[in-house]
Amino acid sequence: MAPGASPVVEPVVGEPAAAADLGGERALLVADVHAGIEVGLRYERGVELDARADERRERLCALIAETDADRLVVLGDLAHRIAAPDGDERDELVELIRAVTDRVPMTLVEGNHDGGVAEAFADDLDVIGAGGGVLGGTVGVLHGHTWPDPGLLDADVVCMGHEHPQVRLEDSVGGSRAERAWLRGELDPGAFVEDGGNEGDGSDPPELVVFPAFNERSGGTWVNVDGQSFLAPFLPDALPAGDAYLLDGTRLGDFRRV
Rank of each mutant, 00 (worst) to 15 (best):
N224I: 01
T250L: 12
V210T: 01
S6P: 10
P212E: 01
P150L: 06
D171R: 13
D188Y: 10
V74M: 05
R81W: 01
T101H: 04
I97T: 02
A20F: 12
S203T: 11
P3R: 06
L152S: 10
M1I: 10
N215D: 15
V30A: 09
S203I: 03
A120F: 03
L75M: 09
D226Q: 13
V209L: 15
V104M: 13
E163C: 14
I82R: 15
D204Y: 04
A155H: 07
A238L: 03
V30F: 11
R42V: 07
S218K: 00
V223P: 00
E44C: 03
D204V: 01
V157I: 15
D237F: 05
S172L: 15
V139Y: 07
A2H: 10
L108M: 06
M1R: 10
V134R: 12
E15S: 13
A84H: 10
D91T: 09
A244N: 08
D102E: 15
R257A: 15
R90F: 04
D68P: 00
D248T: 07
G131Q: 12
G87T: 00
Y245F: 15
R256S: 05
L208H: 07
R42G: 13
G76T: 00
A84G: 06
G36S: 09
T101V: 06
Q228K: 10
G174M: 07
A213L: 00
R59H: 05
L231D: 04
V258Y: 06
H143A: 07
E119V: 14
W222E: 12
D226K: 12
Y245N: 08
F230Q: 00
G132W: 03
V141H: 12
F230I: 02
E170V: 09
F255N: 01
R256E: 11
M106P: 02
L41Y: 08
A83Y: 05
V39E: 14
A155C: 13
V100E: 08
A2L: 15
G116N: 06
V9S: 09
G190R: 04
L247P: 06
H113W: 10
A118Y: 00
E55L: 05
F192Q: 02
P233W: 07
N224K: 04
R98S: 12
H145V: 11
L252P: 10
R81D: 01
R45H: 15
I82N: 10
A69H: 06
G87N: 05
G219Y: 06
V134D: 12
D243I: 02
A20T: 06
F214P: 04
L142Q: 02
R217A: 11
Y43M: 06
A20S: 15
E55I: 00
L247I: 05
T101N: 07
L93F: 03
A155W: 10
E119T: 14
F214D: 09
V9W: 10
A53C: 01
H80R: 00
D171E: 12
G129H: 09
R56S: 00
I128Y: 07
Q166N: 08
G220M: 02
H145M: 09
V12T: 13
G140M: 09
L142W: 05
A65M: 00
P206V: 02
A51N: 10
